[in-house]
Design a protein around this nucleic acid. Structure first.
Lengths: 212, 212
DNA sequence: GTAAAATATGAGCAAATGCTCAGGTTGTAA
DNA sequence: TTACAACCTGAGCATTTGCTCATATTTTAC
């Protein structure tokens, strides 16, 4: 069962036919991960679900780890794009502090809401994979940097004793975690805008923003 | 490879010799989980590490899942005991709101600090195991109930518009998540009492506690 | 049309995994 | 001492896994 090391695409598909194959493989693995978890996501199962032979799978993905990593990469890219959107929006329209925070939370909720089950499996399993550690660290550093920059630009509106580095860490972590949990468990008390409201409250109060 | 369903101990050890065997097995599996993760924690590997034959392992644990579940149970029990201690302490000595919160956070930090790597693996893998789902739900419900009861008893000191159910959820989730993350990543900016301070700040501000 | 390149196939290998069972060893109690 | 129970052993079975490779089919380029 000698496992090969993880890496990116082995061969890049040029013909349409091949692109469809790669797409089917990615879709199938996402579906299995989401519905049956990481252990059930065997290369043979993925190939079967994708309606493709295992040989084809290994023509494009050098290992099972590479497959999962590719999926995680795509997922992470989507997430980062949402963050970038938030920054742009907060910059263009001159939003209030409250609205900017709410926009951020809303973007995060949307991100997690897209495919919570897949998100869970990826966040749990990817860090254990060699190439995955780098990926996770990269994404969290990027988003932390964006939040940190925004905090800095608005520092005058926060409580005086706020440590920006600490605050960045606290906010990124707790916001991510609460939303992650809520979206997975979906308690009825936190549906619709209630979640956005409550997390915003947590953030604004922690920052010491004076309102009204 | 037909997997057996998970359940508790198959046979309870009565002689000292047998108790040592069970103990060695539990220690070995904890060590492998902690250092090499769930997948590496095979029954054969555990038996070898424990200096015991696989046969002996299966005499006490009917399946791999049962083994991990037993470990998680012990871990959860330790955690719950810390919570109970906190409640007792907060009741006996008439602690201030601030000190009670700090005590809670401190207990949580201590809990996660004991064996962070094992805690991570357990929290990630146990929910996927049949018997594990129940275990996890039970523990989180218990701790939520304690926090909720305390919030209720102190409600007059919080902001008027605080929804106790929501607050319970938000606090349990975010506190757990932040501490979990911090203990794993151990950023130098959040060492010693800094973590306890900062999380307490988050909680107290969210609750709307007026101080000084 | 034809040759080369790109793509697809799937039987099957080597290694691993969860677990059993037939038989051995150690403790206990009379 | 003897007899029985508690305990331990480990070779190995049935199955699964990640993955290869020789071969077949399709597309592209001329």
């Amino acid at each position: 069962m000698a496992r090969r090391p993880a890496s990116s695409l082995r061969k890049s598909p040029t013909q349409d036919r091949a692109k469809h194959t790669v797409d089917a493989i990615l879709r199938a693995s996402a579906h299995i991960l989401r519905t049956q978890g990481y252990e059930a996501c065997t290369t043979n199962a993925v190939a079967k679900k994708a309606g493709v032979s295992i040989g084809s799978l290994y023509q494009y993905f050098p290992s099972k780890e590479a497959l999962v990593t590719a999926l995680a990469q795509a997922h992470a890219d989507r997430g980062y794009a949402l963050l970038v959107d938030w920054v742009r929006e907060a910059g263009e329209k001159a939003l209030s502090l409250e609205d900017t925070v709410r926009g951020y939370i809303r973007a995060m909720v949307a991100l997690h809401g897209v495919d919570p089950a897949l998100h869970r499996v990826l966040t749990e399993q990817v860090p254990r994979i060699g190439a995955g550690v780098k990926l996770v660290r990269q994404l969290s550093q990027r988003s932390a940097a964006m939040v940190r920059a925004w905090l800095e630009s608005q520092a005058s509106h926060f409580r005086a004793d706020l440590d920006l580095d600490l605050a960045t860490y606290m906010l990124v972590t707790s916001v991510e975690a609460v939303i992650f949990m809520v979206v997975l468990e979906a308690p009825k008390s936190l549906q619709g805008d209630r979640l956005v409201d409550e997390v915003s409250e947590l953030v604004l109060r922690y920052l010491g923003v004076r309102r009204r």
